[in-house]
């Protein structure tokens, strides 16, 4: 299932290409950036469609309000910057003019999570999923690889309403089947495990798949669900997992507070209680380091998922 032939690719790179293609197909697509177009990869769109690209300077709050205004005049705006600034700096603007006003704004942020690396904690968004998920009318999506990102971008362009898409800086392996087509709110179930099921999003889908392979060799049946839509959750997929598995482990490159783990724990505890263990960053900020060092430091690895399942699945 895992494509080992294709080279790893960052989801932000896939975004830049998908946005350009979308711009060629649809004249109503407009793009805004806050002086980070080279990093978010909106610069490809900017180069080909300068009249539909608005660099807002280092002014995220104004960018969000402007995007809402463009949506209200019938455009489909994609507003991009780093995840920390997009969601944190402009949260009230997103709340009032995007979510409460239900404008058709697409927030697509790069540099989610600790794999931002050397820039350190100020630039590593670890709370963005939580604060976007708390907003009514908002959908939250964390694609797992480059192909899924392309599919996500096309899907959100067709979806009417506010969307937050979280992308990463680092290159990630291809994990989704070649023919996969993303549907908002629908998880991709690789497999439901008898012993445990790992519910992951973003780069942690790859770690989850590797963990399941390691466990298989030890005779442990661990399944994997790619819950790329964190909101609305695919409740059916979760119920299927809770009916079959003894344990659900969530894995995300985000704080364990309020993100995918929080969402899954809330749903499972209220609807079909079974043990849930959350893997993520434990109520702390990140720090400078290479992405690999940081992932190891925070236990965002296949090995840590394996240990967690062995410890808590009653095996």
């Amino acid at each position: 299932m895992v494509d080992t032939v294709k080279k790893p690719k960052a989801t932000r790179d896939a975004y830049g290409e998908a946005l350009l293609e979308l711009g060629r197909k649809r004249k109503d697509i407009v793009v805004l950036d806050a002086d980070l177009s080279g990093s978010t990869k909106t610069n490809k769109f900017a180069k080909e469609f300068p009249e539909r690209f608005f660099n807002m300077g280092i002014a995220e709050q104004d960018m969000i309000g402007t995007a809402a205004g463009l949506a209200l005049s019938g455009k489909v705006p994609f507003a991009s910057t780093f995840a920390v600034f997009e969601t944190g700096r402009a949260w009230d603007q997103i709340r009032l003019t995007v979510c409460y006003s239900r404008t058709n704004v697409k927030l697509v942020a790069s540099h989610g999570g600790i794999t931002v690396g050397e820039d350190g904690a100020s630039h590593q968004a670890l709370e963005d999923i939580a604060i976007m998920r708390a907003l009514p009318n908002m959908s939250v999506i964390v694609p797992s690889d480059a192909n899924e990102t392309v599919s996500v971008i096309n899907a959100v362009a067709d979806h009417k309403g506010p969307v937050y898409v979280r992308l990463g800086r680092a290159k990630v392996p291809h994990v989704m089947p070649e023919n996969h087509s993303f549907i908002l709110g629908k998880a991709h179930i690789f497999h439901i495990g008898k012993d445990a099921t790992i519910v992951a999003c973003g780069i942690m889908v790859d770690a989850a798949l590797r963990a399941a392979n390691i466990l298989k060799k030890d005779g442990i049946d661990a399944g994997v669900i790619n819950m790329s839509t964190v909101k609305p959750l695919d409740e059916k997929a979760l119920l299927d997992a809770a009916k079959t598995s003894k344990l659900i482990v969530t894995a995300e490159e985000h704080s364990v507070i309020g993100g995918l783990g929080g969402a899954v724990a809330e749903f499972i505890s209220e609807n079909r209680p079974i043990p849930v263990k959350r893997i993520g960053v434990l109520d702390s900020f990140g720090c400078s380091g290479t992405p690999e060092q940081l992932l190891r430091h925070h236990g965002l690895t296949a090995e840590h998922i394996v240990e967690t399942i062995k410890k808590f699945a009653g095996l």
Binding site: V30, E51, R52, F54, Q61, D62, M63, I64, G65, T66, A67, A68, G69, L70, A71, L72, S73, G74, K75, P77, D92, Q93, L96, T97
Partner: peptide
């Protein structure tokens, strides 16, 4: 927040 939204509307109107 209103002036930012006004700007977005004005940009959209100009595009059209």
């Amino acid at each position: 927040q209103g002036l930012s939204v006004a700007n977005g509307m004005a940009l959209g109107l100009k595009l059209d």
